[in-house]
Design a protein around this nucleic acid. Structure first.
Lengths: 213, 213, 213, 213
DNA sequence: AATGAATGAGAGTTCATTCAT
DNA sequence: CATGAATGAACTCTCATTCAT
């Protein structure tokens, strides 16, 4: 006699994961478009044409799925912009600035493709609760740290200012993008305007990090 | 027949204005501390030990008072930082940077004095609705415009880079303050750390806006 | 100038108490007729033609009002049956049994007047939760104790059996009423049948507590 | 054409019966421990590590299985206490009281062995709905009837009071046990205390049913 | 003019029940 | 025949808003 086979429909772990992802995607949309407070579980369900119960089979609460939505958004953003942290290695100021230019381009590309991601992170996340704010700040800190490390390398290799406050400049570099991203999400900063904005940021950083003449 | 004189103490328009101001202040506190969604009308009333009815005598709705709260916050912020737009006039790069340094100091002073103001504007305001977001962005745009005009003057007078994207740089200059302000609100960016932060921003701008050598 | 009069409608503490009582009465009815689990807040409100919010202004939760409903029921029952604990004093077996007969009559009278009271206490209360069960058992224990004390007096005075387990008999005396009360609530044990039932209980006790011949 | 033989293992009616019994046992536990309202289908399934579907293959609804749970509990109780109704035949007052004593002992033994049975019957069953209450009362009536018949025999044979209201006394005999059973379920009425309680009941009945001296 | 009791729409959540696999 | 994912009605509870006093 073979090992007793389990009766019934075999549970499909993929299915659960698929559902969860669909729910996170739907919640992401709902939260980005209507706001976390204004969006109801019903709005999430409606996007999937599923019942409320399904939501609660996969997530404990509205608040819990927000964590996943935000983690997901951060992960997608980071994956699109910084797929390989090792790629931050550069050997000269020119290379470094080219890399920055490239990364900025990728950030804009993500926002074009999925504006919801940034709506959520920039606009919604800050007003939920303490835990969520910390979650976001940690993520920002992570990226800041990676950029700071890259700057550190440049300082060590002599093509960046010796007295650079790398962490501060890394944070500045990120926040320099924010006004451009907001204009992109809202009005649509595009084409020539966007290129100018992008060049402006690179130029500002270029001057900011260049070794003293 | 003359208009019938109403009996009793005539309504005092000043009193109404006083009440409104007190309500806006209370709402400001409540929204900043608990968040707009979490704060209830009851929380606002409780701070004044008045009834809900009083609130609705002076404001149409919770949403309406938020407009006043935000306008008030913006006005106080601008008044503290930029009391006289004419003061933005400067005659040299050194003067200009000294002015920037001065303004940054004033911003930090406001946050020290009334952290609620910035909690509201930076964290809460973005997640209410479209109209509120526009209201905030308009205010930011106003300040950005003033700064951009000052930069324009500098360009015209030759002590700033001729090819400066003045509007973009003005916006960036504002957003460069955000990480510092957030750290101030949260952990308390103070003393030496704050000075370093401040110098970092001024330095970045100094290099970024200097005319090509 | 006289002491500043408080503005607005003076709060009426009586009103709140009246409402609370009305809610307790409505809840009592609802719980007795539909059962605690099946009765919804809406059913309580409907009886008073008031909104859900009114309920929650006066009580924290459905579970909380049940405590009041039960306390109320116990109090009314005890007040009707044992208005004066001192009245339990008797001087002879005949007097004692006459008192028992009288008390049984009063219990039936309460059930006739307010069957809900007993529906609640006998049928619903036992299946809510541990705390509620204890609340009821404590009340029963109180009455049992009073009856036991009366029996104790009789033993001491020599007109009851010397070896009487007073507490056990007191409890049994109470529970002997249960089948009759249930039949009253349900079918209606009335008239001659009820008298017979009553005499049966008195007779059993009479024989049970008499001193050994 | 002969009826098409179904493929595979033919459904085993015994298996179905086994399942049903297991479900009833699990439901019995769940209802007794958590209460009917609080226990969910999921709690029943969890005890058997089976799925909800299995439950609904064997029972129509949560309400339906309760009928079986209660019938089962009553049957087990009766089987343990009164395995053979013919055994109620006795020939003298002493024999009769010895039998009563014996039966009381068996009731306590059941409660020791399966407290759930009485928890369910005494505490839960009364608050479900009309039909369930009737079901329980019918069962009680059945037992009361059997006891009454035994009393009737004693009256006929002259060793019990000629004017005994046999039905009423039978009911009284049952309810005399209730406070003791409740104390057993809850605190644990045991050892010497239980014996005293038991003797008290027997004594009370002994006096109650003895022929007039 | 001020009060706060009352309102009730609507929120998040649970769970008995169904049914595709 | 078993499974458990899916369903959605119904629940308790909250809170912005109204209005009798």
């Amino acid at each position: 006699m073979p090992a007793a086979r389990r009766r019934g429909r075999p549970p499909d772990p993929q299915l659960a994961e698929t559902r969860r992802r669909a729910l996170v995607a739907a919640a992401s949309e709902a939260f980005a478009q209507q706001g976390y407070a204004a969006a109801g579980i019903a709005d999430i369900d409606a996007r999937l044409e599923s019942g409320h119960g399904t939501f609660y089979r996969h997530f404990e609460s509205k608040r819990e799925i927000l964590d996943h939505v935000v983690d997901d958004a951060i992960a997608r953003l980071v994956a699109s912009v910084l797929p390989d942290p090792a790629a931050l290695q550069t050997g000269s100021a020119e290379e470094f600035l080219a890399l920055v230019d490239e990364l900025i381009g990728r950030v804009f590309a993500v926002v074009d493709a999925e504006p919801d991601v940034l709506c959520l992170l920039l606009l919604e996340t800050t007003s939920i609760d303490e835990a969520m704010t910390l979650r976001l700040l940690n993520a920002v800190e992570g990226v800041t740290g990676a950029v700071a490390a890259a700057l550190e390398d440049g300082v060590r290799d002599g093509f960046l200012r010796a007295d650079l406050d790398t962490h501060a400049v890394a944070a500045q570099a990120l926040y320099l993008l924010v006004p451009g991203l907001l204009r992109t999400i809202r009005g649509g900063l595009q084409g020539e305007d966007r290129d100018r904005y992008r060049r402006g940021v690179v130029e500002l950083l270029a001057r900011g990090i260049a070794p003293a003449a």
